[in-house]
């Protein structure tokens, strides 16, 4: 019988095939689904997050690990009642209008998901109206906006203004990130937080929901 530790190791190594096999064996043998997630898949991803933060792991390795983890979760999830899924909070994330940069935002989504959040990734080139719509639809705790270009970062401000006019600003915490974005900019446009990289983003989300 494979151990939960082996599953965690598989996630750390980014070995999707191995994780898939071992998770299936554990499911068949009747291991508690939440146990597989928390003590196997998530435990592995926590190590990955820590190592990435310390500069000991590279983005491709983190992405491989995250892929292995979500494949594992994909197998386990149908066996769990929605009410049993322990979610720390819900995050809607997207790249702002006029900006097609996807990778950094997805990496943040992945790290935030690994930290136990439910993540709704709304994609790229998202207008302020679409962000507002997503908030109405999903009622998230946090809205994450990404911009890679100096020319699109002002869209973040516009979105925040739009949320205010729609009466939605107080319903979510807003965090921003991306290459040209700074802490000072975040303060200037009235965002609730900013982080320098994906693992810091996950910590920021936890901090904002008080987890």
């Amino acid at each position: 019988m494979p151990s939960l530790k082996e599953i965690a190791e598989g996630v750390i190594k980014g070995n999707e095939k191995l994780v898939k096999e071992k998770v299936q064996v554990l499911i068949d043998e009747g291991t508690e689904p939440l146990e597989i997630i928390n003590q196997g898949l998530m435990a592995g991803m926590n190590v990955v997050g820590e190592r990435f933060k310390n500069g000991d792991m590279f983005v491709p390795e983190v992405m491989m690990a995250a892929r292995a983890m979500s494949t594992g979760i994909g197998l386990v999830k149908p066996l769990i009642n929605d009410s049993d899924m322990l979610s720390v909070g819900k995050v809607v994330i997207g790249t702002v209008k006029g900006d097609l940069h996807d990778i950094g935002k997805n990496l943040v989504a992945m790290m935030v998901e690994s930290a136990g959040f439910e993540v709704v990734n709304v994609g790229i080139d998202i207008s302020s109206e679409k962000f507002a719509q997503a908030i109405r639809e999903h009622s998230p705790d946090i809205l994450g906006m990404s911009a890679m270009l100096t020319t699109t970062m002002m869209q973040m401000k516009e979105t925040i203004e739009h949320l205010k006019s729609e009466g939605l600003r107080d319903k979510v915490k807003v965090i921003i990130g991306g290459a040209p974005v700074t802490k000072q900019f975040a303060e200037e446009i009235g965002a609730d937080g900013y982080s320098v990289d994906a693992s810091a983003a996950a910590e920021l989300c936890k901090y904002l929901v008080g987890a």
Binding site: G14, F58, V59, P60, E61, M63, M64, R67, D102, I103
Partner: peptide, 13 residues
């Protein structure tokens, strides 16, 4: 697409 999640990347980076 992107190459970050590919085995080829892992093998050679």
């Amino acid at each position: 697409g992107h190459f970050l999640q590919e085995i080829h990347t892992m093998m050679h980076f």
